[in-house]
Computed example of a mutant assay.
Amino acid sequence: MITIGEFSKICGVSTKTLRYYDEIGLIHPEEINPDSGYRYYSISQLKKMIFINRLKSYHFSLEEIKAILELEEDQSEEKLWSALNRKRKEIQERLNTFESTLKQMSNDISNLEKGISIMSSLDNIEVQLVETETMNILYTRQMMSSDDYALGYGKYFSRLYEKIATEKLTLLGMPITIYHSPEYNPTGNDTEFAIPIEETVKGTRDLPGGLCAKSVLKGPYSELTSVYAKLMEWIEKEGYELVKSPYEVYVTDPNQAAVPEDIVTEVYFPVKKK
């Protein structure tokens, strides 16, 4: 048996953290002296603590780690394999986002060296006034946190495509995201994912057509805020007002784009004349 201090030093985890892990049921001391309250750990628990540290380094939450530790032995390897693959995908998506950000920063630095404003791209965004048709959409709607946005929308659209395939529904268009929240909230935003289909079935509704200010982004999704800003500027300048939730149509599958610059996204702001 070793003391909590010795265990802490070997594993690189503070005694305060070890006490917290005990409270939440992650790893308990092997023994607690009833008189002194001193905590002792067994040598065999070092392996468990190192495993916990490794999962933490992979960005698993404490709740996720606890769930893995509680798995039955005959399921643990398979479940761990699935969890690691899922986490690897999440980290890869974050890396892709960072790579896109670094590329944009490099471009901004290059422009500044040439005496070009980093916001000059706003001047090149075109806005059109278009009339859209009503669409029948298969949809799912939920509150999305900032972390959900960072991880991407793949799983939400995948569920809709699975339903389309399973029920042999007729696909009529590209995936759409509709933003219903009146303002951005990092803790949760009312977001709808939709795919146009022909059949009217459970889980479908009409997306009304009408007059829209439209812009097309050719490039990474990180540039969408610039498109939104340009659309709002145009709407105010031309004497229009936003009447329904804005939405995006993903013309290009990002997984099929060789580089972010190949991604094409249409942005629609439903409007009316003031």
Rank of each mutant, 00 (worst) to 15 (best):
I52N: 07
N33L: 00
H180A: 04
A257M: 10
W234I: 01
G152Y: 07
E31R: 13
G25E: 01
N189G: 01
R205I: 04
D22P: 08
L171H: 01
I109D: 04
L138V: 02
T191N: 06
R94A: 02
Y21S: 05
A229D: 15
L122T: 05
M143G: 06
L172K: 06
Q104N: 06
E248P: 14
D262Q: 13
N96K: 14
I195V: 05
N136D: 15
P29D: 03
I32N: 12
D206M: 13
K66T: 11
E236T: 14
I27C: 02
F60D: 10
F157H: 05
A257K: 15
S61M: 10
V243A: 08
N85E: 02
L171D: 02
L242T: 14
K202E: 11
I125G: 08
I50P: 04
L69S: 07
K48Q: 11
L169M: 06
M1S: 05
K48D: 09
Q92F: 04
S245H: 11
T134E: 14
N53K: 14
T265L: 07
T15K: 12
N85V: 10
T204F: 10
K230D: 13
S106G: 13
S57V: 05
N85C: 04
Y38P: 05
T191L: 06
E72P: 05
G239C: 13
D108S: 11
P34H: 02
D190G: 07
T17F: 03
L46I: 00
L242C: 15
G154I: 05
V267N: 07
G209S: 06
P29K: 00
I68Q: 08
T187E: 15
F269I: 04
T170D: 15
T97R: 10
M143W: 14
I4R: 01
P34N: 01
Y268R: 07
K237S: 13
E248R: 04
P34L: 06
I178E: 08
I235S: 14
R19W: 13
K103M: 08
L55M: 12
M144A: 02
L26K: 06
